[in-house]
Design a protein around this nucleic acid. Structure first.
Lengths: 196, 196, 196, 196
DNA sequence: TATGAATGAGCCTTCATTCAT
DNA sequence: TATGAATGAAGGCTCATTCAT
């Protein structure tokens, strides 16, 4: 059905070319607006930045969360995938955990308002929150388990709690030069270490 | 601060009592509304709860931050004053720091949306943020310094950073049963300890 | 509480004078707009016509149905009250029914889109519909019962059905010169008469 | 009407078959959507149901009324054609009228929102309205005339008026179990009978 | 010809803030 | 001084309709 009307001998998809370009434009515009105005920026602004109508945004991303997820999906995925790698190559599980956490913090700190938006329930970002958990919770759990198994850290912190804590520590980090989320997160991870 | 501008020996004193009562009513109503709807609750709701007009609120507290500060001033002050006491009576400076931090967390966690509201710049809560710093920064600094002096903790964390981190960790704590801000803050403070 | 601040010796309500005037203006504007654009006219239009902001309308009439009811309440009430009177003074119950129905038709026919708006469920006019029934159903029932008791009409039509039918017959009546709702309603009422 | 513009002996005939099939698909899809969502259903829904693009619908039926007419043409025609038959076979003209009216009501009542859509001027359904009149007015006139000629009914109701009244009485009939359009229409027709 | 992406007008609703009474 | 009515900017969302591919 999608292939009909296509010239003979061609193997490429015919129709969507402009739409794809548009989608790309949209993602870039959104990312850009998110940087300056946060992920709660008015739909109108994003549309304007992209040079499209608002309807176009709603078509591609029915929900604001859909848009945000699309904008950051690659980076979240990359972060998730880095976990096992770090665990395999790092000197110790605890060190791997530290490095992975740094990656996560780097991501969050550069996303204006992202960390903040994922808090609260009636905000419509539940989907986004869920996506983060779906991707990162298993990885974080794996890292924590490994570090626990090697007796490096205390066992009483679950991954959800850790992720949430890191997320919170990253709120507002990019706009306050006196605030260094990385240091605090490092402290948190240091606090995990077995007292002896 | 509220008394200045009132000439001594003025005959308008009786009037003031009314105003004070009104102010008190206002503070109680605001506190109550803050508990259920957060510190960003609509002005009208607060006015309704207090049984006064909105204009009255604006008269007494031109800015929302003014109102919030007034509501929590006593508790912030109490927290600030507890610092030296704990330091004097506690077994070690680091222990005193831990207890003081617990106090601060207890305060924040029970204030729906307070911690979140103090983040971000364009939110109009800069004054509130400033008040917290003005009162708590010296105390926190004193505690950190003492613990550093006694060689219990590393010296590379300044009080601003710590307060901000604690504040962030408290965001959304009351609405998520899976999230325990106290544990994370404890971890953070634990991370401060000297490796040996 | 509402009386304080009032000049001594006055017995009139102090504050609401302008609001009352405004409410009146609103009702008149709404009535006027309803005539030309129907009861589904945009809120903005009504506000513009009244020379007020939209918020003012929402304050006085949170729901569109509230506004419509307010606009037509007097007339509906008058219609309801006319029922018993006509029954008492009319030659026969059936004649009274006919006269009452004429009153109702006169009312509906002059209200652009009112009859149409009360149909359908997801339209937000349920309240309006309910108000009409609440006021007119008892009256209509009374008239029908009387006519039935005097053996003038068949007994198999209930008041709801009749009101609904009349309402429907009045739809679009004012805009089509070739259509005479009154005649049709008269026919309907005539059809009620006992075959013998 | 649809055939004009096609030269005889044209070689484009094969293409036409496609278009016809498409048109048929469209009509069925539209009919189906009309049943559930009414004749004002979003264009997109109809296109989706038919598995075609929206543009295709606009090509075949530039106006929504065009589509609706096409969907119901057969049934309207059948209704129109039933008139003379009933007149010829019925016991009396008035009985024939009653039966024909029943047919019309049956048709309307089962078409969600059709009756309502034909009211009002700015709705874009004028064409549809006109089509109904074009087909049914002559038939209805014939039936009324016959009944008048046989002295069964009063002569003062014209066919337009009657059709319009029936149409109105059918509005909203399928969604309200307490409302029985057939009974009311029967009453209306009964009311036509000569008092004696 | 068919497709469906894009457009954007149009409506709704909420609330911070001002200001007449 | 207190009140709360009025204002209107701000933002959300839905489709009918057009038009590039």
């Amino acid at each position: 059905m999608n292939d009909s009307g296509q010239g003979p001998g061609s193997s490429a998809r015919p129709k969507r070319k402009d739409a794809q370009r548009n989608q790309q434009t949209l993602l870039e515009a959104a990312a850009s607006v998110f940087v300056t105005s946060g992920v709660e920026a008015p739909v109108r602004d994003i549309a304007a930045k992209a040079g499209v109508g608002m309807g176009t945004i709603y078509r591609h991303f029915p929900t604001r969360a859909d848009l945000v997820i699309a904008v950051y999906r690659h980076q979240v995925d990359a972060c998730a995938e880095a976990g096992p790698t770090l665990l395999a190559t790092g000197p110790t599980p605890h060190a791997a955990l530290g490095q992975w956490v740094d990656l996560f913090v780097d991501f969050l700190v550069t996303k204006h308002g992202l960390a903040a938006a994922m808090q609260g329930e009636g905000t419509g970002f539940e989907t986004l929150h869920a996506y983060f958990l779906e991707r990162l919770l298993p990885v974080c759990t794996q890292l924590l388990d490994a570090a626990t198994a090697s007796d490096e850290i205390r066992a009483d912190l679950d991954a959800y709690q850790l992720l949430r804590g890191i997320g919170n520590l990253c709120i507002g980090a990019e706009s306050d030069p006196r605030y260094d989320a990385r240091q605090l997160v490092a402290l948190l991870v240091a606090g995990l270490r077995q007292p002896h």
